[in-house]
């Protein structure tokens, strides 16, 4: 991959923006708790790609990899906790539809 860094950044950047749009859309348009978590995962994927890309472009891959590894560990722990909360919510409501969860309103 020996091309001008600017061009590379721009092409990857466009795709990162598009993937993020997917993730945001997924969170906004769904009524399903698990699907919201999946949308968040897609967003994190986009962020991971951007960090790795930044590391590649600045020649600092070691730092970028260190950051990504930490990030992945945190992400997993967060998903475990979220999964636990979703399971409990299902036990109370017998559904994971957010439209049924409107007891709290701003």
């Amino acid at each position: 991959m020996s091309v001008e860094p600017l061009q590379l950044f721009w092409y990857f950047g466009i795709f990162i923006i598009l993937i993020s749009i997917c993730g945001v859309y997924c969170i906004l348009a769904t009524f399903n708790l698990i699907r919201a978590l999946i949308g968040f995962e897609i967003l994190v994927k986009a962020a991971t790609l951007l960090i790795i890309l930044a590391g590649y472009l600045t020649g600092n891959q070691a730092l970028a990899q260190a950051l990504v590894i930490t990030l992945i560990v945190i992400e997993v722990v967060m998903m475990v906790v979220a999964g636990g909360i979703v399971l409990w919510l299902y036990r109370y409501n017998q559904t994971i539809d957010t439209r049924k969860l409107s007891n709290l309103k701003g």
């Binding site: 790795i52 590649y56 891959q61 970028a64």
Partner: peptide
């Protein structure tokens, strides 16, 4: 795979 191609094999 993309990460590998960008020179970050461990991550």
């Amino acid at each position: 795979v993309i990460m590998f191609r960008l020179g970050s094999p461990l991550a």
